[in-house]
């Protein structure tokens, strides 16, 4: 797949050196969303922050929170994703999150369960196979 990825956020949250990962990095939400097919939001993980990366959640929402006005910059049929759990009114506006025409967040969460199950199945199968090889018994 020929994917192009843009990373949008305040420079205080963008990992250093991200420009060299083959992604475009910007702190301008409008420019970052321009003509995007998929918009993936990420939760502001306050519990992992030591000290202030941003001035306030209200300013974060104002600059980087996904609302209808900002989403206008993306393609008209762009889908909105979010791995959850969401902070409504911080990184995403509630009406966008619940918009059945744009948001695939519910499906994403649902499929997330299946993907996790599949991943665990693969790990467990491999673990069993390895154990069988080393111990010579069928577990």
């Amino acid at each position: 797949m020929e994917n192009r990825i843009r990373l949008v956020g305040p420079p205080t949250l963008i990992p250093s050196g991200a420009e060299s990962w083959g992604v475009e990095v910007t702190d301008d939400m409008a420019a970052g969303l321009k003509d995007a097919d998929v918009v993936m939001m990420l939760r502001l993980q306050k519990e992992r922050m030591d000290g202030a990366f941003i001035p306030s959640s209200r300013e974060y929402f104002h600059r980087f929170g996904l609302d209808a006005a900002k989403l206008e910059n993306a393609k008209p049929d762009a889908i909105v994703m979010h791995p959850g759990p969401m902070n409504r009114g911080v990184e995403i506006d509630g009406t966008i999150a619940d918009d059945i025409n744009r948001s695939v967040i519910q499906e994403q969460v649902e499929m997330g369960v299946a993907v996790r199950m599949a991943a665990m199945k693969l790990l467990v199968d491999r673990m069993r196979a390895e154990r069988a090889e080393t111990q010579g018994v069928i577990a």
Binding site: G51, A52, I54, P55, S56, R58, E59, H62, R63
Partner: peptide, 9 residues
């Protein structure tokens, strides 16, 4: 000198 002010607003 601790918390950033709302520079954007």
């Amino acid at each position: 000198g601790r918390e950033m002010a709302e520079i954007g607003f």
